[in-house]
Nucleic acid binder design. Structure first.
Lengths: 338, 338
DNA sequence: TTGTATGCGTTATCAA
DNA sequence: TTGATAACGCATACAA
């Protein structure tokens, strides 16, 4: 494993280490001849500066960590893409950790990245009712970080989505299409987004004088398969006992519901209207959904983090950037006249 | 930013650095009293070992790099998940780089990871007809790496998919269902997988005495939108002039085709049968496809890499692991009797 | 321009 | 059982 170091280059060119280092870092005050000689040797032997050794003196590792739940989920993979893009612009490389919904793993992963002395962290906890002590530790340590979602009682840079607004918009739309028997499929109990969307749903029902029917309510849905089961379950009810519309916590679940309903002979949207959240868009079905700007959010998270990293002592105010969720009307909600 | 080091701990406990280090590494030969004192101090001050400094002596950074095209593509995000899982088991953290189909970016990213002295690299080039000099450089450097896909003339550890076999299986199936006018949507010209699947398609046609109709052939499809355009285009042809079945390079394109065809009033599969590759499975449409075990492939890539990293001088033979592609029959291919 | 010294935090070596 | 000191590798700062 032949790593060419500055010392090697110095020996090979017959120059001093400091000269080689100076030229490679574009410092002024070297003759054109030396400059060329160094550059030629560096190219010839494939010299790659050792970022780690550099970090020994510069205090910066030019490395950030990104902690998410599941890279396989388009929601997170788009955030990741946004983060990567901005990190690349700054010459930073990113450590990725998927904790896979396991809280313990998340803490271990964060430790591992601290052990690698990342310059900053982006964390997408997105869970409530879960010990968040490690985030406070982070703050006490003074390690810059940015959060996806806000944590009550923790002042920090964060990016949030207007889940309540999104829930309101889609519910209002479905009601406006004439539906009165509307159901809701909630996500995991620990999901803050799910809670807010559900709250907006309930408020809208109330506001429009509609009643909430517990037979139309589902919770703890977390996968396509969960959606399929719900769709099949509904299809087996008599038409009069099932909702005419179902608002799902996310697109994946919504797609599952559609598949399950269709498996059992139900027509979407004529028998059952379905909506989702996220706007994954990759599906053959033109799903009416609420678009969540995940890619933009990822970029913003990284920008917030880098400002904090580079400002360092500045101690500027923490910032929260809130993204709107936008209703995207496609074809899975039918108008009803009854 | 208060980083507690071993030196700090030594000062705080009144012990020597070497004692603290020994206890923290579970070395034998320390009194229970000292041991407790050190552990207590470490916990109290939130000591996190500096993995970088450790790498200074140990020669290992406990870090690997993963270079892929696009994290947003389920194909790659599953590979990533597999790699992460195995890396985590070994206490390794992974640098992720999405090069976004840009060859230049890929090289730069690899450089960046070498600069961070990763212990090894997993690279998913999956492109042909593209300069691969940097891979040879890697080998010359002696840096362990594993490849997704094989590169002619480059002996190394790699994981491959039987794209030819997959193409043959799905084509044979479609022919067996009675189709005679079958089209193919190829991916990017630089995609090796696309080439192999197309070759198998052509061979099967020939073998069954069917002719290839250039009006049914498409290429350079790379997105859902490309698929939509093709679907719409086909729907606008007279029924007698369009294929009755279309084999698409991947699920995303297949889904686009279905959407496009349905937009224009075509029925899938009655008017047009469609198949994909990858088995993304997240869609409401029960797509007949060829399953590619990406998650398993990711795990295998990581295992190959770690064996190479840990074997080091052993110089064991390079290994190639080939994964079968398995036909998954769902509902987007109709049987034809004409 | 050059040589030398410094530093980073850990682990290894050997002495006490 | 513990302590002192020397690597480890490499970029950089500073004096010459």
């Amino acid at each position: 494993m032949s790593d060419i170091s500055i010392a090697d280059l110095a020996r090979l060119t017959g120059l001093a280490k400091s000269t080689v280092s100076g030229v490679l870092n574009n410092k002024p005050g070297f003759s054109e001849k030396t400059r060329r000689k160094v550059l030629a040797a560096a190219a010839q032997y494939g010299y790659v500066p050792n970022e780690i050794a550099r970090g020994l003196t510069s205090k910066w590792t030019k490395t950030i960590g990104l902690v998410i739940k599941d890279i396989t989920n388009p929601f997170y993979s788009r955030i990741t893409k946004g983060v990567q893009e901005i990190a690349g612009e700054h010459g930073y490389t990113v450590f990725l950790c998927s904790s896979g919904e396991q809280h313990e793993a998340e803490i271990a992963q964060i430790q591992a990245m601290i052990a690698r002395r990342v310059d900053g962290l982006i964390i997408a906890p997105l869970l409530e009712d879960v010990p968040l002590g490690h985030l406070h530790d982070l703050k006490r340590k003074g390690l810059p970080f940015a959060l996806l979602g806000s944590v009550p009682g923790l002042a920090c840079d964060c990016v949030t989505f207007d889940d309540y607004g999104g829930g309101r918009a889609v519910t209002a739309y479905v009601i406006g299409q004439g539906h009165t028997r509307i159901g809701f499929v909630a996500g995991l109990k620990t999901s803050r987004a799910s809670k807010l969307r559900l709250a907006a749903f309930k408020d809208q029902l109330l506001e429009h004088g509609l009643t909430l029917d517990s037979r139309y309510m589902f919770s703890e849905a977390a996968s396509f398969q969960d959606g399929v089961r719900i769709g099949e379950h509904l299809a087996q009810q008599p038409a009069s006992e099932r909702p005419t519309a179902l608002i799902c916590f996310d697109d994946v679940i919504a797609m599952g519901v559609i598949r399950g309903a269709q498996n059992c002979g139900l027509n979407v949207p004529d028998d059952l209207s379905v909506t989702g959240f996220d706007d994954i868009d990759l599906m053959a079905v033109p799903l009416t959904t609420v678009s969540v700007p995940t890619y933009e959010a990822g970029k913003t998270l990284a920008r917030l983090l880098f400002e904090r990293i580079f400002d360092e002592e500045a101690g500027s105010e923490y910032r929260q950037v809130n993204f709107e969720e936008r209703l995207v009307i496609r074809e899975t909600v039918a108008a009803r006249k009854d």
